[in-house]
Simulated assay, not measured.
Amino acid sequence: MNILIIGSKGFIGQHASEFFRTQNYTVFGCDVVTDYTGKNYFQIDATNSDYQDIFKNNVVDVCINCSGAASVPLSLEFPLKDFNLNTVNVFKIAEAIRLYQPDCKFINLSSAAVYGNPESLPIKESFKLHPLSPYGIHKMQAEQILSEYHSFYNLKTCSVRIFSAYGNGLKKQLLWDLYNKFISNKSIELYGTGNESRDFIHISDLIKALALIIEKGTFENEQINIANGQELTIRHIAETFKSILNVEQNIVFNNKVKEGDPLNWRADISKLKAMGYENRMSIEKGIEEYIYWAKKTNN
């Protein structure tokens, strides 16, 4: 089978490309980055993306869109850019599939940000969506685009709502922030109270979840949570990080809530478990691997 990874140079896209090359797939990559040596790689214009030639000239059985912006603060600062990357871009991909590869399975990476502050925990896919940021709104709109293309054109679509993904290669968000603060500051200041919580999933588990969805998903405009169903506080993550890094700095929470950030998340992953998903990477092992990678990266 042929699989197209759009955003193949990004954090999730790189891991997905590496994994599916080890499986029974011919992997095509697509991104805005110049790559003169990559096999089966398509470069697109960052300011005016166009996917029609890719789908017109190649057989694509599965397309995973890993591209787009992934920053709540930047979506607040640059909402139009975020809209173009996370919403308009999805429309262009869906339209190219409709025109040239109507049997292609299309997975778009959505986000738990579509939920905002949920009515209760665990968060089910059926919950009403209350995004708190332009980023969350644009991800919700991308899901609506997939719904449109399934309803009117019978495209095989699936939106995966990823919770807090982490792992080697991610140079942003909580773990990267913790590493850089611990190696350069005497005291570590973090936003919030420390009681805010997230549902973390290691990149290796996330990619295996995508493989299960390709194999067992209905692709009838379904939405699927990708997480581990475990609620971990930011304080717990920070203290675990400190313990594994074996440092002594104090961790201080400033009691300020970042605009657009929800308070507590834990996913209902019944759909994913029904496909055979199992959590393979513990948070402790995942953080240990991340610290080892970060040290090598900074040396």
Results as ranks from 00 to 15, higher is better:
8 S>L: 07
11 F>N: 01
15 H>L: 08
28 F>E: 04
31 D>W: 02
33 V>C: 11
36 Y>H: 15
36 Y>A: 14
37 T>G: 12
38 G>E: 08
40 N>G: 05
41 Y>H: 04
42 F>E: 11
42 F>P: 03
43 Q>N: 12
43 Q>Y: 08
44 I>A: 09
46 A>F: 14
46 A>M: 13
48 N>V: 14
53 D>S: 14
55 F>W: 05
55 F>V: 07
63 C>T: 08
63 C>D: 02
64 I>V: 10
65 N>E: 01
66 C>F: 03
70 A>L: 12
79 P>Q: 07
80 L>M: 15
82 D>C: 11
82 D>V: 11
85 L>E: 12
89 N>Y: 07
90 V>Y: 07
91 F>V: 09
93 I>D: 00
93 I>W: 03
93 I>A: 04
103 D>I: 14
106 F>D: 00
106 F>Y: 03
107 I>F: 01
109 L>C: 06
109 L>R: 03
112 A>F: 14
112 A>T: 09
114 V>Y: 04
116 G>H: 00
119 E>K: 11
122 P>G: 04
122 P>R: 04
123 I>Y: 03
127 F>R: 08
128 K>N: 15
131 P>N: 05
136 G>A: 02
141 Q>M: 15
144 Q>N: 13
145 I>S: 00
149 Y>C: 01
151 S>R: 14
152 F>K: 11
154 N>F: 11
154 N>P: 08
154 N>E: 10
154 N>W: 08
156 K>I: 03
158 C>H: 01
160 V>M: 00
173 Q>P: 15
174 L>V: 13
175 L>A: 04
179 Y>W: 06
181 K>V: 04
181 K>E: 02
184 S>F: 08
187 S>Y: 07
189 E>P: 09
197 S>H: 07
197 S>G: 09
200 F>K: 06
200 F>W: 03
202 H>F: 07
204 S>H: 14
205 D>G: 01
207 I>C: 01
208 K>M: 12
208 K>W: 12
209 A>W: 00
225 N>F: 00
226 I>M: 06
229 G>Y: 05
229 G>S: 10
231 E>V: 09
232 L>G: 13
236 H>T: 14
249 Q>F: 03
252 V>F: 11
255 N>V: 11
258 K>F: 11
259 E>M: 10
263 L>A: 13
263 L>C: 10
263 L>R: 13
263 L>Q: 12
264 N>C: 14
268 D>L: 08
269 I>Q: 02
274 A>W: 04
278 E>Q: 05
278 E>F: 01
284 E>F: 09
287 I>N: 01
288 E>R: 10
292 Y>H: 15
293 W>P: 03
294 A>G: 05
296 K>R: 15
296 K>S: 14
299 N>S: 15
